[in-house]
């Protein structure tokens, strides 16, 4: 356990391993991330609602895309971040990595929930159904339950380190779900259509709709980093609190 708190010597990550240094860095990044979020979401919302055309097939419902697709991308991206943090927690015992994973899991669950809910609101008028058990939807639902599992497992242990290590193992096991989600629409017949943006032969979205989508996605990414750092700071303060409280009871 003693090597947990010690930053790995000689590692490039060493510089950020100290919580004090991290807090300073997070503090100076925060206003930029908040500004980026508000700017991108402001411009993105304007373009999504006023500055973009209706679709030739789907009419005005295409505007649901501007929240549905960024939420779904973030659901995957946040999981990828958790998996990387989990690997560095298990292999290099990086002390902050566990906190990043812990702070990210509820955010990922929220994005996944948004992707599922807005997809349902889009599916009803266009496909004619709120929900179907096709490959894409089922695998995203599994992702949602994975996030809930990570949250539960992190808090299931008396010692925070053990909880973080256990959920790191689960996070790495769950990584197999990411390619399944991404390629489900290509591997199997699904109700969900294939990828429109992240495809080898270029996007199949008209630029007048692609730009609002990308700006919204940038806003969602800034939002994640902003709120995640906020939550990591909260976790660090909580760790200090626990240590002080322990000292007080011991000193009495």
């Amino acid at each position: 356990m003693s090597d947990l708190a010690r930053p790995p010597a000689g590692s490039a990550l060493h510089r950020f391993a100290s919580p004090a240094r991290f807090l300073r860095l997070a503090g100076s990044l925060q206003p930029w991330l908040a500004g980026g979020t508000l700017l991108c979401l402001g411009v993105g919302l304007y373009l999504a609602l006023f500055g973009s055309p209706a679709d030739y097939q789907q009419g005005e419902t295409v505007r649901i895309m501007y929240v549905h697709v960024p939420a779904a991308w973030m659901a995957l991206f946040v999981y990828l971040c958790i998996a990387l943090a989990s690997a560095s927690l298990l292999v290099w015992r990086h002390p902050l990595a566990g906190l990043v994973a812990k702070a990210s899991a509820p955010l990922g669950a929220a994005f996944t929930f948004l992707a599922l809910a807005t997809g349902s609101l889009w599916g009803k008028p266009m496909w004619g159904t709120w929900w179907e058990w096709d490959g894409r939807m089922t695998s995203v639902l599994i992702l949602f339950f994975l996030y809930l599992g990570l949250i539960a497992l992190t808090n299931a242990f008396e010692s925070p380190e053990r909880g973080q290590r256990a959920s790191a193992v689960l996070a790495l096991v769950g990584v197999v779900n990411l390619p399944i989600i991404k390629f489900s629409v290509d591997w199997w017949n699904t109700l969900h259509q294939p990828a429109s943006v992240m495809r080898l032969d270029g996007p199949t979205i008209d630029p007048s709709m692609l730009w609002p989508l990308l700006i919204m996605a940038a806003g969602f990414t800034f939002y994640y980093l902003w709120v995640m750092l906020l939550r990591v700071r909260g976790e660090l303060v909580e760790a200090r609190l626990r240590a002080l409280q322990r000292l007080e009871t011991e000193g009495r």
Binding site: M1, A5, S18, P19, A20, P95, A239
Partner: peptide, 10 residues
Amino acid sequence: AEGPGGQVPR
């Protein structure tokens, strides 16, 4: 409580 070098004690 802060420990050497501002470490968070665990």
